[in-house]
Write a protein that binds this DNA or RNA. Structure first.
Lengths: 198, 198
DNA sequence: AAAAGGGTAGACCGACGGGTCTACTCCACG
DNA sequence: CGTGGAGTAGACCCGTCGGTCTACCCTTTT
């Protein structure tokens, strides 16, 4: 039977598995977390896990997709409305900054982490991450294009190139944040690429 | 007895272990590679491994340090001499680009990978990576400062900030390279941050 | 009432994880 | 000569790994 929307129910075991996976994979990575750990966290027996997912890898894919969709929605929400696009963009990254600050500058982005850890060993995961990356990059380029059309960007700036670099720089800053346990790389990113109008 | 330099000898088992670790960790990450795999690759028995290293973690640290020292030497060599600093810098990154191109756009940088995978679970490894990052960043800033002194950089550019962003952007580009299996992010980095004089 | 099937429950599997331990070889030093 | 330490060799330990399998609800359908 289809699970029709009947909101205030306790989450299904499938949901609890995804949540546990998200949390654990985010904090410790894919290979460092065993099934039993996930099972224990979600309070779900192994039989249910393999009823809902074909393998740990397939499960990982679902976890990443789920997280990616959600964070894409956050980005879209930040870029919606008709404010100045560059300010909306900066607002989004500042929101991220705050999130990481509240979390002690650790862990970084689940999608990026999984991409880094599994790109060479799981083509399924690699493609999943690749797809999400492309979507985010497209949003960035769209926003930048909007800014260019309004004349908020210096003439001659290559939108696509800028979007590429912005996105790379962001992920690099996240890596350095977790290694250096500091917001400095994030702030440098913000100051350099999206300086406050001042 | 100290191993005095007597060059053309077959490598010691310790050396073979480090080499195997470097290769395997680079290709597949730390957690995805078991001791037995390393042992088999290096053709060294377990007893020797634990004679030379206290644990897999300590071994990982040595592997990273070894690799980090070597790549720092490559960077120093590229920045040595008295050519225009910005060109030397671009030359270095172009050299890296070529290396990755020859390797099929995969794996990325061992130090960055280990940093990402282990920063939250091993403080030893985290600090090792952090130290290397700081060293590279310092080289970058030094080179940029030289460029500024020569007037090769636009006035008002913050050297430290630029070095920060450059370094982050590079690691982000490496991540995207391996996920997207493409040199495009690397080229975007080069074009944006270190454009050819043209 | 019976059958069917989604989902729960967990015992069980062989393989492999990191790590320990003992035995042995080899060579420098006294 | 013989002893001690560096290094080699690999059997062995137990815990955990991802995954399978059977049994058993419980609800829906007929």
């Amino acid at each position: 039977m289809m699970a029709v929307a009947s909101p205030p129910h306790e989450p299904t075991s499938r949901d609890r598995l995804i949540d546990a996976g998200r949390e654990l994979f985010w904090r410790r990575g894919f290979h460092d977390v065993g099934l039993n750990q996930i099972l224990k966290t979600a309070e779900v027996p192994k039989g249910s896990f393999y009823h809902h997912f074909d393998s740990k890898e397939a499960f990982g894919q679902r976890v990443v997709e789920d997280f990616a969709d959600e964070s894409l929605a956050v980005l879209d929400a930040a870029l919606a409305g008709d404010g100045p696009p560059l300010e909306k963009l900066r607002g989004f990254f500042e929101g991220q900054r705050e999130f990481y600050e509240a979390n002690g500058c650790c862990n970084g982005c689940l999608v990026g982490n999984v991409g880094q850890e599994l790109a060479e060993t799981s083509d399924v995961l690699r493609r999943t991450v690749e797809l999400h990356f492309a979507r985010v990059r497209a949003r960035l380029a769209g926003c930048l294009g909007e800014a260019a059309r309004r004349g908020d960007l210096a003439d001659g700036v290559d939108i696509e190139l800028f979007a590429d670099v912005l996105f790379s720089a962001w992920h690099g800053a996240l890596l350095r944040m977790k290694v250096e346990k500091s917001l400095k790389p994030i702030d440098a990113f913000l100051d350099f690429h999206l300086p406050r109008p001042s």
